[in-house]
């Protein structure tokens, strides 16, 4: 005899529970956590290096560095003298909420205002996994295609802000910035967009002001 059984099981339920635990901790400690997502080589770590000088003036922050298998990014940030932990996924393409939760608990939470998570370099998978962050931030460099937002709509739809990085290269490459911004707005008209260069520092101020404003 055949029988059909109706069930309703959210398949992200387990991840969501860990993300909620993280949100509870962040709320209790009054900490804002952001999740930075972008392709490998988009300039996420360079952005953090340069963000530090402007952000650290009045915001105490730590960084959780996601990577597939190396500690190179965390080592790059070591000279900044802020708490930095490396989260390794051992081949996986994204961070999950449980790993972030345990790494978060080991940070000096009483001495922090903000935690910045740099996700694994990838535009697809990290967008699927809530890690308990207040805001997702997409980083897209001008050396990538201007149609990136259209190709990866979930990330750009969910991003509270989009950073278009490496603008110092614009005079040298055939990249249509207007088309890039239009594509982002077509997916998410409400998102805040910052065009900047971590190399020259151009545009960094507005980005850091925004970061402080979501506290």
């Amino acid at each position: 005899m055949l029988k059909e059984i109706k069930v309703y099981r959210d398949l992200m339920g387990a991840n969501e529970e860990w993300a909620q635990k993280t949100r509870d901790v962040l709320k209790e400690k009054n900490i804002t956590m952001v999740n930075i997502i972008g392709s490998p080589g988009a300039g996420k770590t360079a952005l953090l290096e340069k963000t530090h000088a402007l952000l650290a003036t009045d915001t105490r922050f730590a960084v959780l560095e996601g990577d597939v298998e190396t500690t190179r990014d965390a080592e790059r940030l070591a000279p900044l003298n802020i708490p930095v932990s490396q989260l390794l996924t051992d081949g996986a393409c994204h961070l999950e909420a449980k790993l972030v939760h345990y790494a978060l608990l080991d940070l000096p939470l009483n001495d922090l205002d903000m935690v910045i998570v740099e996700n694994v370099g990838n535009l697809v998978c990290p967008a699927e996994f809530d890690i308990g962050e207040k805001a997702k931030i997409a980083v897209l460099s001008v050396t990538e295609g201007e149609d990136k937002a259209l190709k990866y709509p979930l990330l750009f739809r969910e991003a509270e802000a989009v950073v278009v990085s490496k603008t110092d290269l614009l005079p040298h490459i055939p990249f249509n910035l207007e088309a890039c911004l239009a594509a982002i707005k077509q997916i998410n008209a409400q998102t805040s967009i910052f065009t900047l260069s971590s190399l020259t520092g151009d545009g960094l101020e507005a980005w850091v002001q925004w970061l402080k404003s979501i506290r």
Partner: peptide
């Protein structure tokens, strides 16, 4: 430097499918 490993080397479809 603290290190954390996620012992689940896979595409995200595998993670979700395990759930």
């Amino acid at each position: 430097l603290r290190l954390y490993h996620m012992y689940r080397g896979c595409m995200h479809e595998f993670s979700i499918c395990q759930n």
